[in-house]
Design a protein around this nucleic acid. Structure first.
Lengths: 179, 179
DNA sequence: TGGTTGTTTCAGGAATGATTGAAAGAGAGA
DNA sequence: TCTCTCTTTCAATCATTCCTGAAACAACCA
């Protein structure tokens, strides 16, 4: 067995399983497995960890750890911290789940929904000149556009500053739960 | 230039761009590019196409076309049809955008959210015996569980039979739009 | 400034996931 | 039953994406 046990085995194993689970979830949704695992580790440990901690725990290279951490910072789901008398950088995951998902939704909207809508508008314009030939085509595009505009509206509401976003979502769900 | 032009160039090009756009979108969300492209083609053309039509238009192999079509059937976003006096199978995309997304949400819930919740519960149980050591860990898991239960509730409402699902979502969004 | 510690970058290699194409399967009609 | 047409399967190949590791970079301190 392992001679040194800094943590109870059960906790350590539970963390590992959480990391694996969250990693799988990530890849199903288009996020690289490692990046999701790094996030999972920071979230579930609750501590601020340094690059070497992450490397050791997940058995990944320095480069990979650095890139994942950078990407997570860009997404706004982790933060840099420092420890007094230590030059290393430490990273801690946002612990509020709603705040975390607001950040995720904000980024995905910016990276995917907004460009998608822009493209759909452009594509629609390509057949503006056509008469009846393009009518059905345009009708289909319009239906899709309408749907994604609704998605965008809803998304904006979800991510809008603190109270509103969370409250709006919670209210909707509470109302929806009642009947 | 191409000698035969069964369709106006503009329409053809618009379709191609839509296919490419939808394909990109797919890969960002964990769906294989080709499968998303096949779906895009069926959706934007509005016709029922056979395997060869899809192969020719997207320049993919028979095997790839067959597998993509099968997967799209499993997702419930396209349907088989037949033409009188023709043994070939034709495929047509669901044209109602809300129905289409209800199918997508239903499948993703079943494939990803449900198993995720099951895993999170299991992981939580792994540290049930631990005292104070595991308390923070469990609190974090609980917060995540709560969030995904909300997601699940909301998702179920969205996909619930015809009227309700669509209506509920539309209502919520209309209300949210007002102020 | 030189030495030390820590971080980022990126070309190349490894792993993962997707596609092909040919062969087997399935069904219809004669 | 045989033949013809269309569909599905799957091992081998290909493409893409991800990770590694070492070198360059940056920041701090004496």
């Amino acid at each position: 067995m392992t001679p040194a046990r800094p943590k109870p085995d059960a906790l350590h194993e539970a963390q590992d399983r959480f990391v694996a689970t969250w990693g799988q979830m990530g890849s199903a949704w288009g996020i690289s497995r490692t990046m999701a695992e790094v996030h999972a580790l920071l979230f579930i440990s609750g501590d601020a960890l340094c690059t070497d901690d992450v490397m050791d725990r997940l058995q990944i290279s320095r480069g990979s750890a650095s890139m994942s951490l950078r990407a997570l910072l860009d997404w706004g789901v982790i933060n840099r911290t420092h420890k007094r008398g230590d030059r290393k950088e430490y990273f801690a995951a946002e612990q509020d789940v709603w705040t975390m998902f607001r950040a995720i939704v904000r980024e995905r909207m910016k990276r995917e929904v907004d460009p998608l809508l822009a493209s759909l508008f452009e594509i629609r314009d390509m057949t503006g000149g056509l008469g009846a030939v393009g009518a059905d085509h345009n009708a289909r595009l319009d239906a899709l556009l309408l749907f994604f505009e609704v998605v965008q509206t809803f998304g904006h509401r979800f991510i809008s500053p603190a109270g509103e976003g969370l409250q709006a979502a919670a209210d909707i769900l509470n109302k929806a739960d009642a009947p």
